[in-house]
Nucleic acid binder design. Structure first.
Length: 204
DNA sequence: CTTATGATTAGA
DNA sequence: CTAATCATAAGA
């Protein structure tokens, strides 16, 4: 029995777009402990988000939106509560939650999830890896959940990928973002939020 | 059309 | 530490 599926702890889906209509640095820590779900034809995978990063609009030199709107990042410039999925390094997909306020191009990158439901399906998609690495690292989250570019722009309130409120983590740690050293001072900003001491983190 | 490169990962 | 691997964006 899992927290995501156990009777008596029904999932409370996030169905209010206003919840997403805030700066990414405000949404990001609130996302920790929340449940990410993907109901696909293959089955459903769900789990607790344990690591995220906030990307803050055009002024943030680490954000894709910092070089203007293009076909790839257009979803970031659209309404909050949608999925921004991009393909990177020729291999990996990364999934983001589009935030606000309004159409300000901010988003939260989901970097690690503790899979709690649909574990078998996630394992099939990922191959033989230890549980702690099943959805650890942004590319691995997308892989385990079966999410690719076809879901770019999907509505988190009406689409196959949803979010639900979960128990607030006991302790949240804030660190610098990973893989954005090129962004100068923006690389130093404390915009990576993690559930402290969680074994599923992509890094400590 | 050509070219450079990345919000990564796994493995030596 | 580096190779893998290709969509994307910018430039000629």
């Amino acid at each position: 029995m899992t927290a995501a599926a156990s009777p008596g702890s029904a999932l409370e889906l996030i169905d209010d777009r206003a919840w997403f209509d805030r700066p990414s640095a405000a949404v990001a820590p609130d996302l920790l402990g929340c449940v990410l779900l993907h109901a696909s034809a293959e089955g459903t995978v769900a789990g607790r988000i344990v690591e995220v990063e906030a990307y803050q609009g055009p002024e943030d030199l680490a954000a894709h939106s910092s070089h203007g709107k293009t076909p790839r990042n257009a979803v970031m410039f659209g309404p909050p509560g949608h999925l921004y999925v991009y393909f990177i390094y020729g291999i990996h997909h990364c999934i983001n939650v589009v935030c606000g306020p309004d159409t300000k191009p901010e988003a939260v990158l989901i970097r690690a999830v503790a899979v709690e439901d649909g574990t078998e399906l996630a394992r099939r998609r990922r191959g033989a890896v230890p549980d702690r690495r099943l959805a650890s690292g942004p590319g691995n989250v997308a892989r385990a959940f079966g999410i690719d570019r076809r879901l770019n722009g999907a509505d988190l309130i009406s689409g196959p990928v949803r979010l639900a409120f979960g128990p607030r983590p006991a302790e949240i740690a804030v660190k610098r973002r990973i893989g954005v050293d090129y962004a100068g001072a923006w690389a130093e900003r404390p915009l990576r939020f993690v559930v402290a001491h969680d074994p599923h983190l992509s890094r400590r």
